[in-house]
Write a protein that binds this DNA or RNA. Structure first.
Lengths: 142, 142
DNA sequence: ATATTTAGTAAATTATCGTTTACTAAATAT
DNA sequence: ATATTTAGTAAACGATAATTTACTAAATAT
């Protein structure tokens, strides 16, 4: 295995705990419902049902039901796709967005607390290195 | 919000897609069962039932049942905790480990493919930056 | 010694997940 | 024009997930 791939996989592994926190269900949502909201939040544009069901590897038949539940609870909106009358686009409501942001707040808090274990110079190094990784990972996506 | 925290959160977000892939169920395992194996794999030491159930935010009563199912299918072992006779420690079997490694292989392949979008120098930059991030994140955990 | 906490189990019940088959209507291909 | 594909819905059924109450036995506290 390439050295660079090892670093990549170790990076995911190192961030695993924060990831885990993302996955935790909030109050009255099931794991899957939460994953759907999370997926919508991360892909911060509107998505069709198909895109969601493929992204999460859940059959569209099931996704229909799951989304209906989220809609009834006020987490998402559903409107016709302007470009394709057969399909619908799903968006987070304010309630939906808030439910996700709360998780980020916890991750943020945790990170800030742990930061104190680095000295000033190391913090700047970390910031710069993360910036570089972010820049290059994005470039790889295009 | 601190700039460094922004970079951190963006980093998680950038790695999210790969992580999603981890979460996809393999063959005959449910989402939750898969998450349990993943959790064991990432925390590559032996864990007690309590640790798993707290880490995944699943009640211990449910965890008992879930683990029994994984045990019956040969993914985990369960043995008495030497330090506390009330508790048991859970470990992945070879089958359990393999099931997780297969997912990593896919993530690895994807990454290697996308790498071609960077030139030689950028690849080295990325490798070095990730190395630095990994080093400092680990230091923060202690 | 006794009381309280802690780790895990058991069983029952409801809700959700996961899959399959079948359907409608719009989009696309021939 | 007609046939085929595509996006989404509906309903039904078995398998899990999630929650609650109650229990055992070891560990810890008083």
């Amino acid at each position: 295995m390439l050295q660079i791939s090892k670093e990549y996989i170790e990076l995911i592994s190192n961030l695993f705990k924060s990831f885990q926190r993302l996955n935790q269900k909030s109050s009255n949502l099931t794991h899957l419902q939460n994953q759907i909201l999370e997926f919508l939040f991360m892909n911060h544009n509107t998505l069709t049902i198909k895109q969601i069901s493929e992204g999460l590897n859940v059959p569209k038949q099931q996704m229909t039901v799951l989304l209906k539940r989220l809609f009834d609870q006020g987490y998402i909106t559903k409107s016709q796709n302007k470009h394709d009358k057969r399909s619908f686009v799903i968006e987070l409501t304010e309630k939906g967005k808030t439910s996700q942001q709360e998780k980020w707040a916890k991750i943020y808090q945790n990170f800030v607390n742990d930061l104190s274990k680095l000295d000033r110079e190391e913090q700047l190094d970390l910031q710069y290195a993360m910036h570089k990784v972010n820049y290059l990972l994005k470039k790889m996506e295009d």
